[in-house]
Each structure stands twice: as C-alpha cells, then as structure tokens.
Design a protein around this nucleic acid. Structure first.
Lengths: 200, 200
DNA sequence: CCCGGGCCGTGACATCTGTCATGCCCGTAA
DNA sequence: TTACGGGCATGACAGATGTCACGGCCCGGG
C-alpha cells in the first residue's frame, strides 16, 4: 500500500484527485493539505511514501516544501504545476523532487507517476523535459533576477533599492540591462516575461 | 440522464471531474473541451443539458461562452473559477450563467450543482454571494477601467493612448485618478489590484 | 431656464524611470 | 604580474510618468 499526501490550495482539484486515488487498490491517501506550511508539518508527522505537491501554494510553494522534506523526512515528492516551463522544472529538480507533472496532463497519470516514484524511480514529463534540454536558461545575472523579484508587484525603484540596500541608480541600471536582454521596454513587461518563463 | 459538457483548459482537473461525474448514475459527460471556442462549437452541436465552464480559458473565457450559448442553444451554464471575487460573480450572472462555483469548493459539489441547475434551479456559492452583497463595486469609471485594461501588460502610456485614440495626457490623468482611488502608487499595482478584485 | 455635479479630455509642470559612461572588484589567462 | 572580461555599483542626463488646474459635455434638480 502506497501512502500518499496530497497538497494543493485549490480544493476542487485536491478533492477530485483524492477521490480518484482512493479508487486505486494499492494507494492510500493519508492526508490532504491546502498550503505548504501545513504540508511540511503533516508530512513530518505521517511520513507518507509519496507527497504530491502543487507548485503554486500560499505560504511555502511546492519547491520549498520539497527542499524541507528532503532534509528531514524519508519521503519522495512529486511536483504538479499549472505553469510547466523549463525554468520551473529546473527549480523543481534542484530541490530534489522525484517527479514533475504539468496539470495539463490527464488525472490518470497521477496514479502511474505515484507508483513509479514510490518504487524508487523518477518521472519527468517528457514534453517539458524536451523543452528544458533544447533550453533557454535565464540570460540574466543573479542580481538582475533579485531586482525583478523585488519589483514583481509594481514596487517603485526607490522601494526596490531599499529592500536590496542599493542606490536607486543601481537598480535602474540592472533594470536597464534586463530590458535590453529581454528586448522589452518596461519593467512590468520584463517581470511578466520572467514569470512566464519560470525564472523568478 | 443529465447530459453534461465540461470545458477547462487544465487537463488534469477536466479529466478528474469527468471521471468523478461518470461515477454518478444520473449524469453523462458527453464532451470535454480545452478552450472556449471549442466549447461553443461542441455545445451547439450536442446541446447538452448543462455546460460546466472554467472562467479562465484561452480563446473565449467562460463568461463569453455563456453569453454566446444563451443566445443560440437551450442549455444552462455553470461557471467554475479559481478567482471567485464579487466582480467576477457579477460578470458571470450578467452573462446569464445559472451556476457559479469557486474552485476552492470540493469536487463533490459539482455533481450537486449540476443536478440543481439541470432541474431549472440556480446555484451561487453562498460565500462569494455574501461578499458580493456586502459589496465593493468598482469605484472606477468606465474609461478608467479601459485604461487599466489597455495597460495590463506593461504597455507604455503612449501605446495605451494610441489604442484608445486619446492624448497621452488624458491617459495619464485617468491613471492618476485610479491611483488616487485605489490608494496605490503605480500603474502596475493598480492593474494587479483590479485583476485581483475581478474588475478587469 | 440655469445651476451643480460627474465624467471626459487636455496641457504645463515636477518627479520618477531608463540610458549611458564610468569606476571598482574579482577571477582567469597570458 | 599584468591585462582582460564580467558582474556590480553609481551618478548625470533625456525621456516617460504622475499631479494638477482647467474647460467642455451631459444629465438631473431646483
């Protein structure tokens, strides 16, 4: 019997998956969680064989949950996400995830991936993997990514500068470099593009 | 037997719901669609009793699909969405939807709502309805909303002005009014807030 | 009728943002 | 060691953005 923890902030898909998985004779859903923090706590208590984690969750996201669990619990994590971009896959694998499945795939595949991962294997969606190999890796430097992250929600340059302890001019310069590399004209467009590609 | 069409661009949830609904003895899933345009075409051909439509879809969104179907086919639409805000509910009901269900609800409820709608009733999620009554309606004027929409993706003021056939100054003035009303400091923050609240 | 209020459109002005040239620091190759 | 390249930080400058005060339009109430 494979003991599974399910974490997704979207109740409908979480309960639907749980119901489907309960129909499988060799799978037992031992917990359902609605956010990352809860998932970590519950997983540490129950030590499920496999954790199926949504990437986008309030509190800790799927990648952060995976990192913590890999350091503390003997469990294997499958990350499920709506935005299946090469950058996201890279982050997921770097965090130690054993499986990666876009939500564009059918629900049937979840059980199959769980079995594979539970038996010690790994699973990465072939299509995203192909993209990740042909690959565009972020052409941005660390500091440039920092600036984009700090300016994600339309923060003013001054605010970004304060959060990063920089002079406003420096922030503007990083932004300028980004705009050039990404061939866009606005900070907001740069942020949207970077989110789109899973760089931040 | 209630004949149901399911439309959602996220394959995992679509297939999961379909699988669960097929377990219900009185419900038959006659079609699954991945975008709005397809949903309209298929619904016109099959005339299902109930259409379950995701709000966020490529091509036509759930509200637009509902509008078109209400003009052409004898079917009833349930709109399902991840972002269940009063503004969204308002738009959904204005389009003639018979049901409104946030994705935060459990998957079990879908079948219940389908039955209710199929028998001529309406269903609106009580929690969102309460929010919509206590109500925050957009404090923004039509033109201000136009400007926000045109500037959604970080477009420059000049571009916005051109798409709306306005002088740049006018656009700036509308933006300024919005920033004041919404108590934020940036156009991007205003856009994010308006999207958040379902105003655009 | 005339007035007031709300919304729209516009231009002048101050401020903020992006561009550019520059200097610093560090790791590496000659 | 020296020279070079890359990333980081900064300030001066030009252009875009937001603020403000103004005038026109329409509608409903004295």
């Amino acid at each position: 019997m494979i003991r599974v923890l399910l974490a997704d902030d979207e109740g409908m898909i979480r309960s639907a998956l749980a119901a489907l998985l309960r129909l499988e004779p060799d799978i037992e859903v031992v917990a359902e969680c609605a956010d990352g923090t809860e998932a970590v706590a519950v997983a540490q208590r129950l030590t499920p064989d496999v954790c199926v984690l949504d990437l986008e969750m309030p509190g800790l996201d799927g990648v952060q949950v995976t990192e913590r669990l890999n350091r503390t619990v003997a469990t294997r994590c499958v990350i499920v996400t709506r935005h299946a971009r090469p950058g996201v896959l890279r982050r997921a694998l770097a965090s130690g995830a054993a499986g990666f499945l876009p939500k564009s795939r059918s629900a049937d595949e979840v059980a199959a991936v769980i079995r594979r991962v539970a038996s010690g294997g790994r699973y990465v969606d072939p299509e995203v993997a192909a993209d990740a190999l042909s690959d565009e890796r972020p052409p941005l430097t660390d500091r440039e990514l920092d600036v984009l992250r700090a300016g994600r929600h339309g923060e003013t340059t001054g605010q970004i500068a304060r959060t990063l302890s920089l002079a406003p001019g420096t922030v503007r310069n990083h932004v300028s470099a980004v705009l050039g590399k990404l061939q866009v004209g606005t900070r907001q467009q740069a942020v949207l593009l970077a989110e789109e590609r899973g760089w931040i």
